[in-house]
Write a protein that binds this DNA or RNA. Structure first.
Lengths: 374, 374
DNA sequence: ATGTTTTGCTGAATCGTTTAAGACGTTATC
DNA sequence: GATAACGTCTTAAACGATTCAGCAAAACAT
């Protein structure tokens, strides 16, 4: 009969189920049953086991021991493009996480945010060593070694906003179509000179204008597809997309967007419209215009992507591509969970997008006299 | 010699280190060493082990087996007041998480978001069964059974924005002092009739005006302290805080804030100033005023709490109490990590706050003729 | 040639559970 | 009265790794 009360606090070793069993004079199996299958033992004994457990400071089965035996952890992992802390600074990612967490919480699962390290030296150890039952892989570059490492685990997984891989289910949007729609909106308004403020094209992006080869071989699918969508629209208007300046940002922040837009607006001839790959960047573009005393939309049209809440509150309110971030998260989570349950999941889900017209886009100034707009 | 290539994909059993060992003709200990202590075996053999591992589809040591043996998981948990998905909808919580994730990522640790379930029936199973090396407990009610369950695990922990407990380190702000400062700002401007839009006072809050007993026995420390701070300031101005209406919200959303403010503004006599416990709620209060065609600040002063980014962009910009959300997260994370490293951590950290004066507060209209303001 | 250290590997115990399968006494069934 | 069924509890074998003491051979020193 050995007590263990001294271990209150974070120090000291916790009691094990075996010790509880010994102290209560039963077998370990019975202790296990007390916690996991109340119907397998008499209520009286169960109570006694709990009583002893309390006395010994045993707070229930150790998750690792249990997990090892049961082959399941009760948590799903989430892998993000970049440093974890950046995810929380990106409204779109936060909304996505909101959706994922909703799905996982419904299922009683934990959500394990896996540290990737900075993009420079991604450390696969964390994803190799993370205790999880499955994972959602969000917005990663198609050649990111972490994706490889993650998939190697052979866990149930779902890819989000990424190229398909093997038979892993995926959810995403039609980036190319959405971008095309956004650009066509501008060509229809009569714009002829565009600039693109782009998200990262490859993980090791250094920022700056991207040449056509770089555009072609972007390893982030979303960026590549959106670029393609923009280009298609431009071509459709009889223009040549190759000449269109594309400034690649390294972070999805208003600051980076501002810098990019400033670079583009310094060009001659100056574009009359900016195609921006995210609202975070677009907010920065608005700021750039403001600093140049170039009024939006009169002097410059801007169309964003994502439709984050701040887009509607911006001055002027931002014309942008809406996409269902939270729903994407919920879908991804559910898809993963149904795999965990062994159900055969649908292969791929493409969620709808919608161009939201607000105040940041009008015909170019050159056309005003032609009666299109006043 | 047995291959296992058929298990590509999520199905199939993964190879174990023992199988790799057998196939490579070495002992399991050697396989382990190949992964964990490269210096313990010849480079040639190590390469051979990896080669066999690759062939067999062995992606490195199983996290659970390893975790069990090593007594450590490589992840820290995070426990939140409410449903996880709500955390992502609350900018303050998101900033806090940003900080925590920064700290954990630096240390190469995962961040496990523990599902609590809805507040009604909190399920302690998840916190009992979560595989983690330590946890941060954020903004929980002092009588929440989940806190008890979490502390019972005897893991290293840190409490955030919560009453101290035992010798668990904690980080927070001086809620009472900050609230008092906010309220004193208004009393100094000459306001005499106040309304309080309050965050939840207890987990099972139903919303509505809270009587004095309810205010007294609030189990969320932040709410209780802020209420106390407001009251102190009011008393200091020679008024009686007991008469001040306090409307308790159930969620920290603009919608709830609007509803609360509407209820308060319908009172007679109508308060000239609103003390609001969060900016999310305050944004809703502004909306309520707008709907009543009551202009802020001329007809109503509003002071918030948190200084979320949207506060500065609101119309009018919100006077509010700034607090270092992200830094709080970093501090909490670091405090936890230093415990994990066995370092004796400081007991308690109180972070600074600051009242940020913006456009939502002016003297009450009654005083304008007296020359104070125009 | 002998003693000592180093290198490279293995055997066996251990981490804390869960879970088939089975033992044993009691009660229901025909 | 035999048999089946049941309720309760136990035995023993996993689950997948790590770690420490130890051992043989090789390298080095004397």
């Amino acid at each position: 009969m050995y007590f263990n009360l001294s271990t209150r606090g974070s120090g000291g070793r916790r009691a094990t189920s075996k010790e509880v069993a010994a102290e209560a004079g039963v077998s370990p199996a019975t202790v296990s049953n007390a916690y996991n299958r109340p119907d397998q033992l008499s209520p009286a004994l169960r109570e006694r086991v709990f009583e002893v457990a309390r006395r010994l400071g045993y707070a229930g089965p150790d998750p690792l021991g249990r997990g090892l035996r049961r082959r399941r952890t009760g948590a799903v992992g989430m892998l993000y493009t970049d440093r974890l802390s950046y995810a929380f600074a990106d409204p779109a990612a936060v909304m996505f996480l909101e959706g994922v967490s909703q799905a996982t919480e419904e299922a009683g699962l934990g959500l394990l945010l896996i540290p990737g390290g900075s993009l420079g030296d991604r450390d696969p150890e964390a994803v190799r060593g993370a205790a999880m039952d499955g994972l959602v892989i969000y917005c990663m570059a198609e050649d990111d070694p972490l994706v490889e490492a993650a998939l190697d685990r052979r866990l149930p997984a779902v890819l989000v906003d990424q190229p398909e891989r093997g038979d892993t289910p995926s959810v995403g949007i039609d980036d190319e179509g959405a971008a095309r729609t956004a650009a066509e909106h501008l060509t229809r308004l009569g714009h002829r000179r565009f600039g693109v403020v782009s998200l990262k094209l490859t993980p090791n992006a250094t920022g700056g204008f991207a040449d056509s080869q770089r555009r072609e071989y972007a390893t982030y699918r979303s960026s590549r597809s959106r670029l393609k969508g923009y280009a298609t629209a431009i071509s459709g208007a009889g223009l040549s997309p190759g000449e269109m300046p594309v400034y690649e940002c390294t972070e999805n922040t208003p600051e980076d967007g501002r810098v990019a837009a400033e670079a583009i607006l310094a060009l001659h001839p100056r574009p009359t419209a900016l195609l921006v790959m995210s609202d975070q960047l677009a907010l920065g573009a608005l700021e750039a215009a403001r600093r140049r005393e170039l009024s939006v939309p009169e002097g410059l049209s801007v169309v964003g992507f994502d439709d984050v809440p701040a887009a509607a509150r911006a001055a002027p309110p931002l014309t942008t591509v809406w996409q269902p971030h939270a729903e994407k998260g919920v879908k991804a989570g559910r898809l993963l969970i149904s795999q965990l349950r062994g159900e055969e999941a649908s292969r791929t889900e493409v969620l709808p997008t919608r161009l939201v017209l607000r105040g940041s886009t009008v015909p170019p100034a050159e056309l005003w006299s032609e009666g299109g707009w006043s």
